[in-house]
Amino acid sequence: MPRYENRESGHECPGRGSRGKAVRVFGWVAGSERLGSLSWLTIHAPGFPAAGPGQFVLLQPEPPACFLPRAFSVAGQRGEEISFLISPVGPGTKQLTNLREHDPVWITGPLGNGFDMDTLLAPPMRRAVLVGGGVGAAPFPLLLDCLATSASGPDLDVLVLLGFRNSSQAEGGQPVRAAAARLAAGGASCRIEIATEDGSIGKARLVTDLLAAEQRQGDRLAVCGPQAMCEAVWQTAREASGLSCWFSLEANMACGVGSCHGCASLRADGSLALVCRDGPVFTGESLYGVGEQE
């Protein structure tokens, strides 16, 4: 059974106010699975605190192929086993996805604010919609596990919309499916829709096409994906009134903790936010502004 399925639900999900301090620990690879063009990497990290959904870590194999560690969303956690969805695109990510069981890895985290579950679930909560693009699906297995263990878990209505380039990349959505199944097993309503750009699954379409067809007034959106997708999601979401959107951003990082100021990202008001310290999760309004209502 793949490791992402061999997990009961039940991740103890710390709220923003009740999280442990971050640590930097020497861990090792507990498992690595290819999911089409993506990989599911699990690190055993002794003493690692419970991560909130949308929080991230820095990973660096020992010895490293690259000078700097790389930042990844926590995709799943079961005790001291932390999992990541990784797209092998450069030397850093390729080294990580080529690691074998027991290979040593430095892991620093959990870092960043993550999704605020209290706000996401605050009444009047009608439906949570998770929108992911490619490897941007990474934070959703943990987010779904946290939804499952939340007080309102069995009553939730959750829709997951994932966009991938092709069917090979879409295999990376399997851990999200497994977590969605765990959530549904607890009594919640949870449905997943997948779009592929090349039409290798269903017809060729973007995740924003799914969103445009599905969105309803009052939806709460948690979004993670490429910058262009995030902007398109914001444009689409603005057409339905009363939506709330939170975006998890990606940025080049060096330190991950607010030391280097390298991961600055422009906000709607022209100010710069540090993705590592002020994010990685931001509201749609703060990033893209309210703009003119048409």
């Binding site: 000078f67 100021h261 390298g262 710069l272």
Partner: peptide, 15 residues
């Protein structure tokens, strides 16, 4: 405020 992003990139043996 400092410079506009992007502000950092890893380079061979450094950044």
């Amino acid at each position: 405020q400092g410079n506009l992003p992007p502000r950092i990139l890893e380079t061979p043996a450094g950044m």
